[in-house]
């Protein structure tokens, strides 16, 4: 079951107002390498996913990555809208990929639709980043359980019980408690207004 992109349309690549991104930019601009690493870990999956639409060699991919992040280093503290960092990164990545693809005289990227980055994707990237941050705040026991529950193919409760040393009948309640902690996580607070963007279901149903 894949996630559905919602029908919420966002003009351009502005993305959502993401206060976590703004706070990280401020700290990184002030010299905090840890905040910078957090920024990279939050958004590298989106940058990577955009890059994979272009037929780039590993060398081109490295050039793109170096330049995208170098541009961001230079812009830290100067971004007009640091809370829209994901949108800025998406647009910058796409531009650098197009440049690399053209300079290498490779065939066209996988057609015009492949080159486009939609507002929905930026929102999804922000949501994924927030969810991973929420997951990282959980106790180790919750993180291990969540990892096993979402793995593809899924583990059986029996296998989870053996691996984590939890009785089978306690997995359900433990799962519910962990999910509740994620719901309450401060990492998700800033994205409160993405409400109707339901995974795995029709938001209009």
């Amino acid at each position: 079951m894949g996630l559905r992109a919602s029908r919420i349309r966002v003009p351009g690549l502005a993305g959502h107002h993401d206060p976590a991104a703004a706070a990280l930019c401020t700290r990184a601009a002030a010299g905090d390498q840890g905040a910078w690493d957090d920024i990279v870990e939050r958004y590298a999956p989106m940058v990577w996913s955009i890059c994979t639409r272009f037929r780039l060699s590993d060398r081109d991919l490295e050039d793109v990555a170096q330049n995208v992040w170098l541009l961001l280093v230079e812009q830290l503290g100067k971004l007009p809208e640091p809370a829209a960092l994901a949108g800025w990164l998406a647009a910058t990545t796409r531009r650098e990929c197009l440049r690399a693809a053209t300079a290498s005289r490779r065939p066209e990227p996988l057609g015009p639709p492949a080159a486009a980055v939609t507002g929905e994707e930026v929102i999804m990237a922000e949501r994924n980043a927030a969810l991973r941050a929420a997951l990282a705040e959980l106790p180790a026991s919750c993180q291990s359980l969540m990892d096993m529950l979402v793995s593809d193919p899924p583990y059986s409760y029996a296998a989870i019980s053996t691996a984590l040393g939890i009785p089978v009948e306690r997995i359900g309640p433990q799962r519910a408690r962990c999910l509740e902690r994620i719901r309450e996580s401060s990492a998700l607070l800033g994205l409160a207004h993405i409400g109707g963007n339901l995974p795995g279901g029709d938001p209009d149903a």
Binding site: M1, S49, N128, R132, S151, I182, R183, P199
Partner: peptide, 22 residues
């Protein structure tokens, strides 16, 4: 952000987020 999500939907979203990172 998660209003209206049931546990299955939240788990699916978590799975997608982890997959994207991995």
């Amino acid at each position: 952000m998660l209003e209206g999500w049931d546990d299955e939907q939240l788990l699916t979203a978590l799975g997608e987020a982890i997959k994207a990172r991995d």
